[in-house]
Simulated assay, not measured.
Amino acid sequence: MSVIVYDRKRELMHADSRATSGHSYPIGAKMKIHNITTGKCNGALLGVSTRTPGMGEAFKEWVTEGMSKEAFDPNFSQLEALLAKVDNSVYLFAGSHCPSGPLVGDFFAIGSGGEYALGAYKACGDPFRAVEVAIECDPFCGPPIVSKQLRTPDANQPPMIRRVIRLL
């Protein structure tokens, strides 16, 4: 299925790309981390773990369109998702239209490889390596690893402003 991690300190989300459709053999690769570019979660990162093809994209649309209770697809209860907002708050979706959070912590891991990633992170402190370990241990996870940076308001400043701030 997946391994998706979010490192709050580095504001980075990493995920494997293996598409399995619920089986241990790969059927290709897919994007599991999505940028939310409109709506009330504009600028957020969304990592979705599901065994149903197309469900991650449908869930992304639901989040983008405002996460209304009425538009919640009951099939979404079969997925896990991490939502990292621009203020670096993190929310977990696991079987409900109501997210859990904001969560307290610096590292979060979901998917079938989540436990491997959490253990690896505790041992080495490197979120990218944690995903590599999950890929090595879980037949439902596979390369390539995709990484996306959360675009916080400070990260979106023009380069000249950042240089001036550093000089001060």
Rank of each mutant, 00 (worst) to 15 (best):
D7I: 06
A15E: 01
S96Y: 13
K122C: 05
L12I: 08
Y6C: 00
E57R: 13
I110C: 07
N88Q: 14
S68I: 05
C41P: 00
T52Q: 09
V90M: 11
A130T: 07
H97C: 10
L79P: 01
Y116H: 15
I27W: 02
T50S: 15
K122T: 03
P127H: 11
N88Y: 05
R8H: 01
C137L: 15
V3T: 10
I145L: 15
V63Q: 00
F140V: 09
K69G: 01
T37N: 10
P26L: 02
E136S: 15
P102R: 10
F72D: 04
V86R: 15
A94Y: 13
V3D: 01
D106S: 09
C124A: 11
A94E: 13
I33R: 01
E80Q: 15
K30C: 06
K69Q: 12
D7A: 08
S17P: 02
G142C: 14
C124Q: 11
M67F: 00
K9L: 10
E80P: 01
A134E: 12
H97M: 08
S89W: 07
I36R: 07
S21E: 11
I110S: 04
Y121R: 02
G43M: 06
E70R: 14
S112A: 05
M13L: 00
I36Y: 04
G105F: 09
V104H: 07
L46D: 02
E61A: 09
L82D: 03
T52H: 05
F107Q: 04
F107K: 05
F72S: 05
K148H: 12
Y91K: 04
L12S: 03
G111H: 03
F72R: 02
C137Y: 11
A109P: 05
T20A: 01
G47N: 09
L45R: 11
M67E: 13
S100F: 14
T20P: 02
V104L: 07
L82V: 14
A44C: 09
I4F: 06
F76E: 05
I33F: 06
D138Y: 12
T52K: 08
D138T: 10
L92Q: 11
D87S: 12
F59M: 01
L83Y: 00
E132I: 10
G54F: 09
E136L: 15
R51Q: 07
S17E: 10
S17F: 02
P102F: 13
V63M: 00
P127Q: 12
P26N: 07
A123Q: 14
I27C: 08
A71P: 00
G95A: 14
K60S: 04
G114S: 06
W62F: 09
N35W: 09
Y91A: 04
E70N: 09
A19F: 06
S100H: 11
S17R: 02
T52L: 12
